[in-house]
């Protein structure tokens, strides 16, 4: 099958590549760009481990073809740290609140939470549960993921984070 030339901006860098039309965006990111932080967990659009930010939307990159993202701007987990290399508020929140265990769902969680907080900077617990419902985690039971996002929201809003009472 003839290959197609694609260009996109990924984590701030202009990238290009030759892909088959059927090449899934997640494989382009992982194999061509060697950005392996984006994971594949289910391949059926359920688990959200492959979530990236595509032109301001959280998308599951296992269900988008790379050719569809031609000309787009993409952020992956590898582009989420602060410019000085320190952990961003969300990354720090996941660590401080023990929002991860095996780490496999974490990139997708952080990418989704990033867009959620862009759209809703002060979400309630219920907003977070709904907003994160496209991402599966097998380890944490979600409770500490919710705390992690609340921690990040507080930090980004410059307010003190009060840990939810047990």
């Amino acid at each position: 099958m003839a290959k197609t030339h694609v260009t996109m901006k990924v984590d701030g860098a202009e990238v290009e590549g030759l892909v088959e039309p059927r090449t899934l965006l997640v494989h382009f990111i992982r194999e061509n760009l060697q950005l392996t932080g984006t994971h594949v967990g289910c391949e059926t659009t359920h688990c959200g481990a492959c979530t990236v930010d595509l032109d301001g939307m959280s998308v599951k990159s296992c269900t988008v073809f790379a050719v569809q993202a031609d000309g787009s701007e993409i952020t992956t987990i590898e582009g989420m740290a602060n410019p000085d290399g320190s952990l961003s508020a969300l990354q720090e929140g996941f660590r401080m609140m023990h929002g991860l265990q095996c780490g496999f769902c974490t990139p997708g969680m952080i990418m989704r939470a990033h867009r959620l907080l862009q759209e809703n900077p002060s979400p309630t617990e219920q907003d977070i549960r709904m907003g994160m419902s496209g991402n599966l985690c097998r380890c944490t039971g979600y409770q500490n993921i919710i705390r992690a996002i609340q921690y990040a929201a507080a930090k980004l809003n410059n307010v003190e984070f009060k840990e939810a009472a047990e």
């Binding site: 659009t45 939307m57 959280s58 998308v59 599951k60 269900t63 988008v64 709904m130 994160m132 419902s133």
Partner: peptide, 9 residues
């Protein structure tokens, strides 16, 4: 319908 990511697409 579906979940947040799917609803963007």
């Amino acid at each position: 319908i579906a979940d947040p990511q799917v609803r963007y697409r």
